[in-house]
Design a protein around this nucleic acid. Structure first.
Lengths: 196, 196
DNA sequence: GTCTATACTTTGATAGAC
DNA sequence: GTCTATCAAAGTATAGAC
């Protein structure tokens, strides 16, 4: 792994746990084993540019992870349930440190850094589209698939907040059920309208 | 309003928008109009103690606000819908700055400050209990009311993240529907089991 | 209790030797 | 490209006059 990659990796890891303002460039240099000057060599625009790269890297990685979990199950609904269950397991295993890698940063920059806010918006939009496309492929119409995609990501993000604060996996399960049930109901309605 | 109250008020406001590490004590002193030294006069333990007070103040205020919205509607379900709708309106009116007042801080301190994490846990627990007690009063059994209370708060929190990042009210509506529908269904089941 | 000045640390960022 | 030394600013915290 080259130096640039190690820096981005360390930034993504630290920011996922401690947030944007809570993570210093010196800390990133130390954690990655890279000399401090290398950060500005690879990211001339400094912390903003590095953070954008870290967010995109985390965002892509997490999307692939979730897609793997969903597509790893024969049934779409089982795949969705596995997401909440898997997230709960990772939370417990990491003592509630490893959750959504971009959520804390997204909230921090939402009203303070428009450049980074746009990066988080693009990532969330990708996640929503990833989920919605699967719902649409399963038979839902475009709008309904999008709304439930948003509800799915919202439930995950909301449950991450509560689970980390309460140090309990309970929200992961309680928040997942209504969304999965809503998709079950929507698929049943779609099936009644036009069975494949 | 006395000095202490102004300080707590300013801290709660600033931290709600810019987070914990993103808000400085000097900024709080300036915003509140209080001299810097007064912060340490009223909060000898410094930033941690002040933040705990700000979180509790925000947490209580937001709970009262939401309870007012819910109880302001004749029907519980309309009250829940009004929460998501009202949150969407406030987001738009504030250019997506005013959302959940403790969410950003909760994520920031979850893995870095156990004292403050416990404060956010207590606040979220109060919110969950506030919602669950209303669901139970409407006819749901204790466990189901609690699970749906958690799902309700999770949906709100998750939608806040997405709405602020995307600068769109859409998540507020999309995330709210499955939870409200789940409560509709649960109430119908409870009614079938034992109509009042 | 109020307010100012200051100490100490850490931050993001830069310059320049190698 | 790598690495170190250093800057100016902002962070928390403290001391002490009034």
């Amino acid at each position: 792994m080259d130096t640039r990659e190690r820096i981005v990796n360390a930034a993504a890891d630290l920011m996922g746990r401690h947030g944007y303002t809570g993570t210093g460039l010196k800390q990133i240099a130390a954690e990655s084993g890279a000399p401090f000057g290398s950060i500005y060599h690879f990211f001339p625009d400094g912390k903003t540019e590095l953070t954008a790269a870290a967010l995109r890297w985390s965002g892509e990685g997490y999307q692939l992870l979730v897609e793997g979990v969903i597509d790893g199950e024969a049934d779409l609904l089982d795949g969705l349930r596995a997401c909440f269950e898997g997230a709960a397991e990772v939370l417990i295993a990491s003592d509630y440190a490893d959750a959504c890698p971009i959520e804390t940063v997204a909230l921090e920059v939402a009203s303070t850094d428009e450049t980074l806010r746009l990066v988080t918006a693009e990532i969330f939009a990708n996640w929503i589209e990833s989920a919605a496309s699967r719902f649409e492929a399963a038979g839902l119409d475009h709008d309904e698939a999008r709304h439930l995609g948003i509800a799915f990501i919202s439930a995950l993000e909301g449950a991450f907040v509560l689970s980390r604060a309460l140090k309990s996996p309970e929200p992961m399960y309680a928040a997942g059920r209504p969304v999965v049930d809503a998709i079950v109901a929507a698929l049943a309605r779609a099936d009644r309208r036009g069975p494949s």
